[in-house]
Design a protein around this nucleic acid. Structure first.
Lengths: 189, 189
DNA sequence: GACTAAAACTAATACTATTAGTTTTAGTAA
DNA sequence: TTACTAAAACTAATAGTATTAGTTTTAGTC
């Protein structure tokens, strides 16, 4: 019963680990407590409840994705940056499929930081798009379409929709991104 | 304790209704039984368990979506058919947001009909694409990109990602589809 | 060395799905 | 009409979930 050095940060990062191990839908506070060497009720000294854990795991997932996206576009611009970011995005989702599922649940947690957290994924995309000849509104339109495609692709791939093996999935993805690059470059300039 | 006229079909359609009412994540067999005027354990005379219910609700959702997509392209071709189908798709997702969530869980249910059921959504899209000058492999590549975009868009919209009100969401969607139509028409012909 | 607040604990509650065993019902056969 | 059977309802119990209340222990401070 000695005080374990528990705090919210350790709990959330362990939760993220457990989500990846057991699957997003099979996460439980019982297993989390077990992994932390503590009784389940003890967690409530540090967290409000399951909802808060879920919410914070989502924020953590978005944070990590953000870092990777930023790194992917360092010293790159335009088409090269876009291709690099989109590949990094899919790579993250494939390496952390269960944690990635937390990303889409982000805005569900109705706290105020969500605008900030949501922006973490859009921001590097918007940064790239600024180098193209789109006005601000078209930039938003285009970024929504691009994010939809990227997210939709990795989620459907993970869910098991793309089964026809006579068409290579990597190539499907590349062609999709190339399509977006074509559209993007067609905006006058 | 008189025999209620329960069968699998009634159970699943009631489950689908309950999913829409309470939200996909808050569905329970207890509430389902309550709504059917039966004790929870009695459901097991007709269903294997929760997993089967979830799986069959997914199949039902896909079936309904399929019907709507087919109807949307009746007597239409090419660009007009594509625009009509994509609008119908989003419309379905907006009118049945919780039930739509069951669609993405389809392939998780590992039964053999999944190829058939999954095909229900692709099929009308492929039918449209046959009228364009793509070879079979490119048709698959393109359909994956299009489905990713459509699904990704409606899911992110429902999840609350598209918040900037200075860009109209309907227009974002239209522009996205128009982009795909441009790409599609650029395949020689 | 006593006091306090944080952080662990135990115990209980109300949900969830699921299984086993029992009773009732509806329909069929004698 | 009565007896039989199988389906479909039931009750009761189990194991898992999150959560709350109340208690004990610990670590650090006065």
């Amino acid at each position: 019963m000695a005080k374990k050095g528990l705090d919210s940060k350790i709990i959330i990062s362990t939760a993220a680990q457990l989500v990846e191990e057991k699957g997003y839908d099979h996460f439980s506070l019982n297993e989390l407590a077990l992994k932390l060497g503590v009784k389940t009720a003890s967690l409530y000294n540090h967290i409000e409840g399951l909802q808060e854990v879920n919410s914070k795991v989502s924020h953590l997932a978005v944070s990590r994705l953000h870092l990777i996206l930023e790194a992917s576009i360092a010293r790159k611009e335009r088409d090269e940056a876009l291709m690099s970011l989109t590949l990094a995005y899919r790579d993250f989702a494939k390496k952390n499929p269960e944690l990635y599922k937390a990303v889409i649940k982000l805005p569900t947690s109705e706290d105020d930081q969500l605008k900030e957290s949501g922006a973490q994924v859009v921001e590097p995309i918007i940064a790239i798009l600024r180098k193209y000849a789109l006005n601000e509104v078209d930039r938003i339109h285009f970024s929504r379409a691009l994010r939809s495609a990227i997210h939709g692709f990795v989620e459907m791939e993970e869910a098991g929709f793309f089964r026809r093996h006579d068409a290579n999935i990597d190539i499907s993805y590349e062609k999709m991104i190339e399509g977006y690059i074509v559209i993007l470059n067609s905006y006058n300039n």
